[in-house]
């Protein structure tokens, strides 16, 4: 018994220490910084102010938030539209092909997503792979402008985040009892009706989980917008990064970061609430 409690203490203690040093303290520093003033010499002056938060409501910055949220929503929706049919097929495949496709979904994780974003950049570039192929096939006469557009950013996000949509969806669809679908059609539901009234409600936890796993990172992923969107597609992530690295306005960047973290916390809280409600429905 003593060994067991020691083991418990060690593992949990280490984890708590790790999270404390690398998550809690930095976040606290950011929260504190967000209430301080900018200083030319020392980055930050220890003088309390709420000016940084007030500045966030400036229409210019609000536009950044809105645009960023919209882009993340579009990316989430696209991931859902691509990921759901894929996960559905995957879960219904024979045991022979399923592991193969699952590994294909997971393989991209073996390469850093920043490097993979550079790869997309070379494909989408004006003299890149895609244009070269399209030109060679005679489908287009002049190279298309693909890179540094909102579409390029969306493509990049969908590409990087798609596995985060597929995996939770796969997990719930795989557990879906096929006799539920049979029961629906037995009772006179067409395939579409069965899908809307039975399959979607039963896989809703996966839909919500996948959407959150895509939407939340999509809000903060600055390097995809940086590399594929050029300077003009400013997202929340880029904005915060710019405040810290370019504008050197740490308090303002901190305020934006704290606001985004709070917004995410609210979304996550809503998620846990809805899942608890769904679970009490016996799913």
């Amino acid at each position: 018994m003593r060994d067991k409690s020691l083991f418990k203490f060690l593992t949990i203690g280490l984890l708590a220490l790790w999270l404390g040093i690398f998550v809690l303290i930095p976040n606290l520093m950011i929260v504190v910084t967000s209430f301080l003033q900018r200083s030319e010499e020392h980055f930050v002056d220890v003088l309390f102010t709420v000016e940084n938060y007030r500045k966030l409501f400036d229409p210019v910055y609000f536009g950044v938030f809105a645009h960023s949220t919209l882009l993340a929503l579009v990316a989430t929706l696209l991931c859902l539209l691509i990921g759901y049919p894929f996960a559905y097929r995957l879960a219904r495949l024979t045991t022979r092909w399923r592991p193969v496709l699952l590994v294909l979904v997971i393989i991209p994780f073996w390469t850093n997503s920043l490097i993979r974003t550079y790869a997309i950049k070379t494909i989408l570039a004006t003299k890149g792979l895609l244009n070269t192929v399209l030109l060679a096939l005679g489908l287009i006469d002049a190279p298309l402008r693909l890179l540094y557009t909102s579409s390029a950013v969306t493509v990049g996000m969908v590409y990087v985040l798609l596995p985060f949509m597929i995996l939770p969806l796969y997990a719930v669809i795989e557990k879906l009892d096929s006799s539920q679908i049979e029961a629906a059609s037995d009772l006179g539901a067409s395939r579409l009706q069965a899908f809307i009234r039975v399959v979607i409600p039963l896989t809703l936890p996966g839909i919500i989980a996948g959407s959150l796993l895509v939407f939340l990172p999509a809000l903060g992923m600055f390097y995809i917008a940086d590399l594929l969107g050029g300077a003009k597609d400013l997202l929340i992530g880029n904005f915060i990064k710019n405040q810290f690295l370019d504008a050197r306005d740490w308090p303002f960047g901190s305020a934006a970061s704290v606001t985004m973290t709070l917004a995410m916390a609210v979304i996550l809280l809503a998620y846990y609430r809805s899942i608890r409600r769904l679970n009490s429905g016996g799913i």
Partner: peptide, 29 residues
């Protein structure tokens, strides 16, 4: 297809819809 046949099935596992209450389950058809 099953939805157009005038037969109904009581499944071995019952296959009741867990997200609906008893009334909605029975009313489904």
């Amino acid at each position: 297809p099953p939805e157009q046949r005038n037969v109904n099935t009581v499944f071995q596992s019952y296959a009741l819809f867990p997200h609906m209450n008893v009334f909605d389950n029975v009313a489904f058809g």
